[in-house]
Design a protein around this nucleic acid. Structure first.
Lengths: 114, 114
DNA sequence: TTGACTGGTAGGAAATCTCCTACCTATTCT
DNA sequence: AGAATAGGTAGGAGATTTCCTACCAGTCAA
C-alpha cells in the first residue's frame, strides 16, 4: 500500500538521507577532505564503525556517494548531483522568502523614513 | 545524553521537518495556494485530520509555518525563512557539482573535438 | 442554550531509525 | 600459510515516527 500520494520517493529519498546530522557531517567531510576510506571517516564520530557503515549505505542508496575499491580499502566519494533535486525543490520558496524580505524592507522604509 | 556531536539541532531541525513527503506537500500547498485552514489542507491527503495536525505541528516547531486564528479556524501560512539554512548548507555542494559538470564537459571536448 | 463545526491533544499500535555486538569475507603482511 | 587489517552484514534493543481513534475546548448559528 503506497500511502504517500505526496511526492519524492526515489529509490531512496535524498531528503530522508539528509535528515540525519551524522550523514550531513559525512557529506561535509567528503566535501572538504575529499574521498577517503571508511575508517578515516569513522574516526570523526563517537560511534562504532558498523554504524557509520550503515549511514554510508543510506547515502549510497540515495546516490550521494560512490564507492571505489582500492585493495582492502573502500574509498567513498561525494556525488553531489542528487542535491540538485533539493536545490530545485527549494527554488520557488527562495523567491517567496525574498519577497517577504522586500516587504519587510518596504515596511521599515515607511515607518522610519530617513 | 546528546549523542549527535555532529551539527544541526535547532529547536527542531529543518532538515528533519523536510524529510517527510506529506510535510513537503503541505509546504507546497501553502506556497501555491496561500494561507489556508487545516481542513482545506487535510482534504488533499488520504489521512485522518489529526495526523495532518501533527505534521503541521512539526512544521510549526521548525518555524516553517505560522498560525493565525480567525474565528474557529486557524490559518496556516508559509514562513520560508528557515529554508535559508538549507540553502546555505547546500551552497558549497552546488559549487562541487558544477565543477563535476565542467569536468565532464572538458572530457567530452577532449574525446570528441569538433 | 443547544447543536454543529474547527482543530488540538492523549494514548497506543505498528513501522522505521539508530545504534550496538558479534561475525563474516577479502586483502595484505610476515 | 597464518595473523592482522578493512569493512560489510545479521540480529536485536531502544528510541522515534507516523498513523489511528477517541476525546477535548473554543466558536458560531439556531
Amino acid at each position: 500500500m503506497t500511502r504517500n500520494a505526496a511526492a519524492g520517493s526515489a529509490a531512496t529519498d535524498v531528503f530522508a538521507a539528509l535528515a540525519n546530522p551524522t550523514r550531513r557531517e559525512l557529506l561535509r567531510l567528503l566535501l572538504e577532505e575529499g574521498p577517503q576510506p571508511v575508517q578515516r571517516l569513522a574516526s570523526h564520530f563517537d560511534m562504532a564503525r558498523p554504524s557509520v557503515s550503515e549511514h554510508l549505505k543510506v547515502l549510497r542508496d540515495a546516490g550521494l556517494i560512490s564507492e571505489h575499491r582500492s585493495g582492502r580499502e573502500r574509498h567513498y566519494r561525494l556525488e553531489a548531483a542528487p542535491l540538485r533535486r533539493v536545490r530545485d525543490w527549494l527554488t520557488p520558496y527562495e523567491r517567496f522568502w525574498r519577497e517577504k524580505l522586500a516587504n519587510l524592507r518596504d515596511l521599515l522604509d515607511e515607518e522610519e523614513p530617513s
